[in-house]
Design a protein around this nucleic acid. Structure first.
Lengths: 179, 179
DNA sequence: GCGGATAATCTACTCACTAGACTATCCACA
DNA sequence: TGTGGATAGTCTAGTGAGTAGATTATCCGC
């Protein structure tokens, strides 16, 4: 507990564990750490994107709700919550705010009077399109260092990973609602 | 406010805003939304990665602190906090826990007795290497759908975006500490 | 050696999130 | 057709994570 790693004193040189095989292929460097990159990129995106959707009640999550609700058939609150991995309580007050602004309405489902269908209004579609336009600029700024082909490639790869990750989460989800 | 978008009723077909030019190039679809992909991927990674570093005090952040402290010259707590975009108060109790486990020590900086240098111990290096090995498996699982070349490509692109985003944040940061 | 700045710590507060209770409704089955 | 268990949505109360601000010790320019 008192013993200081010799490597820690070895300033300029990348330190290594002494008695143990290091993960030889991966360099001991934050800049090449996938988790770190994800954290930084997500954080940077969140900062700029939050500004882009600040006009929407609920901010980024309000945007997601509108996006989910506007594409595909009308769905219940719970269905949206599951799709977006949002807690159903969160969904309730998120929809409260979006409905208060007139961006969507809750319509009783004729086939199941317990459920409410979430329907985006004209105003909601309009607000969503404006947000998407601003978001596009924020994304462009985030990816400014990549040339167009690289940007497309990054998007495609990310979307593929997201799609399978999302599917896997929902397969093993006959039980609990996360977040 | 009562008016429901006609598009919202139009089930199978991707709805469009009525009176307004849509962002023609971007499809109105969550699956091709960069923010959504980032959210899903980050979330999936966080879930699996948190398990990989559960043995470390502070979890993912403890891991980041060790990674940052072990590579490069010894630094003060504040320097580490800035590098990792962590609040300095968080850094204090994070280091408390890591030090209590004997993974690092706080050494008074001989050149500035206000500051403490963070030094990773042998035990800390060992724990870090074990965590990295488990993390490697978690990452492989997350990226399992991509072939090796695509995995490398995604990592490279993400790291490039992260690097510039991180730099930009620190350029305009003569003022406040975030998170 | 005086005064403003800085590293680290500690305290107290705020706010986001969620578990769980509750109501209305559904559906399977007798 | 009525009964019991499950489900959609809402509401409330409690918890915990994060941070601003005060505090102490030290630095450094003048």
């Amino acid at each position: 507990m008192r013993t200081i790693s010799a490597a820690a004193y070895d300033h300029g040189v990348t330190p290594r564990a002494s008695g143990r095989k290091p993960p030889a292929d991966e360099p001991l460097d934050l800049d090449s750490d996938l988790g770190w990159a994800l954290r930084v990129v997500s954080g940077a995106f969140r900062r700029t994107a939050t500004g882009s959707v600040a006009a929407l009640p609920g901010g980024p999550r309000g945007y997601l709700v509108l996006m989910a609700a506007v594409s595909g058939p009308p769905r219940s609150q719970l269905a949206l919550a599951q799709q977006l991995t949002l807690n159903k309580t969160v969904m309730t007050y998120l929809l409260d705010d979006l409905e208060a602004e007139g961006l969507l309405t809750r319509q009783p489902d004729p086939a199941d009077r317990r459920a409410r269908q979430v329907l985006v209004t004209e105003k909601g579609t309009h607000a969503l399109n404006e947000a998407r336009e601003r978001l596009g600029k924020a994304e462009a700024q985030l990816l400014a260092d990549l040339d167009p082909a690289e940007q497309r490639h990054l998007r495609t790869l990310l979307e593929r990973v997201a799609r399978t990750a999302h599917r896997e989460e929902h397969e093993s989800e006959d039980c609990r609602l996360p977040e």
